[in-house]
Amino acid sequence: MQLAFTIIALLILAGATAAVALRNLVHCVLCLAVAFVGVAALFLLLGAEFVGLAQIMVYVGAVAILMVFALLLTRNADLPATGPLVSKSWLTGVSIAALVFGCLAIGILASGVGQAAPPSPQLSVRQIGEELMRNYVLPLEVLGVLLTVSMIGAVVIAMTDPKPD
């Protein structure tokens, strides 16, 4: 367990670092996909089967492919960037990252992580489905409507076509 966690964590860190540090955009996307797979593996390691598989399906299958398509459809995307790797406003970025990390760390530490871990609940897909369809049906439906609206909006924007006169 410990060993598996270490390996997966190192994989995620390496993938994420490479995604930021590499100069070739396509390599960055592929490394990001590796990091996504690592996160999914962490979920699977914790016994959260559904979440892990959904992570792979959504992030590797959809988000990474979306990025790839965006790269392919923009001009000169496969030329390596020539600018400096670290931007001038790096201090702002680092401070924001530190702030987010601090907030997360405080939140996690306050949740009593140090104590003995409770036995992980055996969640089956059926239970998740029942929770979603009973207790959380309103948020689910609202999210569905939101996604549909955003998709229609994207289609409308993409279809804007000045009539040739």
């Binding site: 592929l30 089967e49 559904f50 598989l53 399906m57 590797v60 492919i65 897909v125």
Partner: peptide, 22 residues
Amino acid sequence: NLDAGVLFFFAIGTAGELAAFM
């Protein structure tokens, strides 16, 4: 015998798209 076997099947299948792109 996965509890979410069908989901696993499709989740794994998405890697094919990435491979085709690669």
